[in-house]
Amino acid sequence: MSDMKLNIARAFQTAWSMWKTDWDLLLRVAGLFVFLPQFASLLLVPLMPALPEGDTSEAAVRTWVEAFTTWFGAYGPWLFGAELLTLFGSLVMLSLYLGTNRPPLGAALAGSLRLFPRYLLAALIVSLPVGLFLVPAIGFVLVLPAMYIFGRLLLTGAVIAAEQPIGAIAALQRSARLTRGNGMVMMGVAGVLLFGGQLAAWPFVAAGRALGGAPMANPVTAALLDGAASAALTAALIATVLVRIALYREALVLNREA
């Protein structure tokens, strides 16, 4: 197994083929569960209170904490709800391709509801390495180890959708086994998937947020930019799901040949 490598080029070609063939179905699922929640979040949730710049006094920090607590109390549940819907949409897409006998959309929706608690738990665990980037002082040092772990666990969601019934922890372990010997490659793929969509959407997000915070901004222009950012994030999520599906299938073939 250690001498056998995943065919990453073929996986990306397979993902592109699925994109072209099933775009209409994917757009219906992602439009409802990904685009609309993301668009609503960008359009309706105000900017998070900015950290005090140049003033690290106790009073300034306390004022910011109070403002952030108020902001999060008002809008945190909405942001969390949007992320839940996005996660559910990704699980539906996984189920459409990896569920038993390629289920129709209605069956995929019903099956995803049943699987969602374990999928959510697994997603929270998989996201922990990414959260290490935000740790002050040591985040930069942990980037490579965190991305390596994230890459090894990248197939967890596909495992949950394809290998029912399987628990969250068992799916994490299964992903690690499927990617054994391909850790560095998976780390690279994980980096592309994680940052590619964010980079594509960043110009629209930044411009939309800037206009949203400007008192004389044109609301129509700000809404168009938020819509463009949401569309970029939606396309990136679809691409990410399809690549994970293709990589999972490649890993299965590799393990059978090993």
Rank of each mutant, 00 (worst) to 15 (best):
A201F: 06
L178H: 10
M186F: 13
R152A: 05
G197C: 06
I169G: 00
L155W: 09
T221N: 01
I149F: 11
L193H: 07
A168R: 12
R174L: 11
G181Y: 05
I169W: 15
V192M: 10
F150A: 15
G208C: 07
R174M: 11
G181A: 06
V159K: 05
P215K: 09
L233G: 08
A210H: 11
A222C: 03
V192D: 00
A201G: 06
I149P: 00
V189L: 08
A146T: 08
F195P: 06
R177E: 15
M186D: 09
P215N: 04
V185G: 14
T179H: 05
G227S: 12
A214N: 14
A170W: 00
G212W: 04
R177K: 14
L153R: 04
V189R: 06
G197N: 08
A222I: 03
I149G: 00
V189D: 07
I149T: 07
M216C: 00
M147H: 04
F150V: 00
A232S: 12
F204G: 01
V159Y: 03
N182T: 01
V205F: 10
L224F: 10
Q173A: 15
T156A: 13
L194D: 02
L224N: 01
L224Y: 03
A217M: 00
A200N: 02
P203S: 08
A158W: 03
L155V: 07
G188S: 03
A222S: 13
V192L: 15
G212F: 02
G151L: 10
L194V: 02
G167E: 03
G213M: 10
R209V: 09
Q198E: 11
L224E: 01
A200S: 06
G213L: 10
L178C: 10
L172M: 13
A176T: 07
M147K: 05
A222M: 15
L194C: 03
A176P: 00
A162N: 11
P215F: 06
G191H: 02
A161I: 09
A232T: 06
P165H: 02
A229S: 01
E163Q: 14
A158T: 01
R152M: 09
S230L: 12
A171G: 03
F195I: 11
L154N: 09
D226A: 15
M216A: 14
